[in-house]
Design a protein around this nucleic acid. Sequence first.
DNA 1: CTGTTAGCGCATTCAT
DNA 2: ATGAATGCGCTAACAG
Lengths: 349, 349
Amino acid sequence: MTVTLADVAARAQVSPATVSRVLNGNYPVAAATRERVLRAVDDLDYVLNGPASALAAATSDLVGILVNDIADPFFGIMAGAVQSEIVGPGGRAGGERLAVVCNTGGSPERELTYLTLLQRQRAAAVVLTGGAVEDAEHAKAISGKLRRLADAGTRVVLCGRPPVPDADAVALAFDNRGGGKALTDHLLDLGHRRIGYIAGPEERTTTRHRLEGHRAALAARGVPDDAGWTVHGPYDRRSGYEATVELLRRAPSLTAVVAANDTVALGACAALREAGLSIPGDVSVAGFDDLPFSVDAVPALTTVRLPLAEAGARAGRIAMGREAAPAGGMAVVQGELMVRRSTGVPSKA
Amino acid sequence: MTVTLADVAARAQVSPATVSRVLNGNYPVAAATRERVLRAVDDLDYVLNGPASALAAATSDLVGILVNDIADPFFGIMAGAVQSEIVGPGGRAGGERLAVVCNTGGSPERELTYLTLLQRQRAAAVVLTGGAVEDAEHAKAISGKLRRLADAGTRVVLCGRPPVPDADAVALAFDNRGGGKALTDHLLDLGHRRIGYIAGPEERTTTRHRLEGHRAALAARGVPDDAGWTVHGPYDRRSGYEATVELLRRAPSLTAVVAANDTVALGACAALREAGLSIPGDVSVAGFDDLPFSVDAVPALTTVRLPLAEAGARAGRIAMGREAAPAGGMAVVQGELMVRRSTGVPSKA
DNA sequence: CTGTTAGCGCATTCAT
DNA sequence: ATGAATGCGCTAACAG
């Protein structure tokens, strides 16, 4: 029924091994026979059996990409960049690798499950994006799983995620703390002293680092940080909206709101507008990430640009061994403060 | 080195066949032996070899999802929805299927390449999203490829894409024409008569259908359609910006601009603002898709909501055989006109 | 440069 | 309910 390599060999009048060599191209084959084989492949409309190939060679051409939410451009941009760099040797159409995108929803269990599934597939590499959940037990489980993946020959790269101890994984970490500090420094420079903070989900490295940067900036100037001015919530628009309503209730005197990311900031802006407050006239707003839509927000959003595409591309190249891993197995990727119109001098007393 | 099923069998003192049966669960096994096997699996930290399993069983648990651009939420939302519905039988963690997301960039060649790659992997199903390129030769190639995939047992579902002749593929098509017509009808109702149109890339079904809807609305009211008022470009922000600059140059008297999608509309808004024009005071703007950020645009964007998540989820279920295919192998998914603040009564004469 | 020979690890007949 | 045997389709030594 289905055409196999042996069929091709028969038609080209060569041995199966030769066909295999032609197809994989990592072995010298006479030009004439190659032609003959290729023609036979074409004639028979032959398609290599991936599983069989992977079984025999003990490696597959699948690359796993773990993301929290593929519908979020933050992850979509990184995933796309990784995928663009995992082309096979020679860049040939047939030699490409496939990206397996796994939506973890930020759940540690699903993360583990997907890693096991990728291990089962004998994935060539795995790229983990997004912040990690801060839980000792889970951290150990992940670390062990990553180690076993690496032992099995799967290259592991962390993109936008802090290093994992004892895991033999290359880490490209975003400087969330530095970015968070730069953002709040900017607001302090403008004269803000009562700044609300809409943080991401608790127990996340990203959340904690950004918040730490914020607090470090405040502490450096001796500005008091009221605990009630910080609210946690998921990384979505609704969370920004609701958190802002809550902040406005708790502390109507706030002159600025820093959001966990741009999406949250958009929700915050909506809530402020509905409350009849102008931005930045009454309240300044800042985001994080600089997603594509942020420059088109009205007013354009002050935020910290993270080079998502560049980081993803680099992670992809490292995962493919096409680029050397950074010294020490880790690199810090800096963000860049983008000052736009959503932040200004506070007008309230 | 690596633990195999045989190792597990030895430890559990059963035959490899029994272990296989326990793992797959599609065969009666005594509770006691099952326990023993499961314990052995745990003790040895055994992970099934996917390729070997796929080779022996002649099916894999990979599901392909073709998208134009995974960084675009339009596709990210659909991909995420598909992925959420392709859980394996029983919903068990270990029984899940993996989503292979393929970024085609809208290129027919890459589309074909990825389909071949998925065929090679013996994918359980393939979901194609996004509009198709309108080219006879390519259409035939795709059609043939899809047929062969279906013949090999891969279920094929088109999501947001018109049916493919002779391909035995279920199609969930968006009513782009109806949506386009509703949008332009809305503008005509408001009194607009000089409407610019920023269309998507040429030779795309999505582009053509939306444009046809626009023209049908104009024709129905006898409103002339100046060829110079339509500009084509990619589905991105920049295209919207540049096209709007061009439209403003060509026809300063336009009172409304309809964009190919929301992202393009955002670019159009930016260009209008820079030109000192107010929205909708001077020019009304409308988008398409109703992506999450559109409601937060200022002014909030009038657009056509496409139920991307619902369609993707349904495509996923159909791909898994968990939902019956629609009668005739195709269903039309309606959009919904969302009238918001970016459109209003024209002020110009 | 090419053919021959063995498995890769598992699912599935058949037996029992 | 379980075990033994066979082959899925391919790659990787090893010869020649």
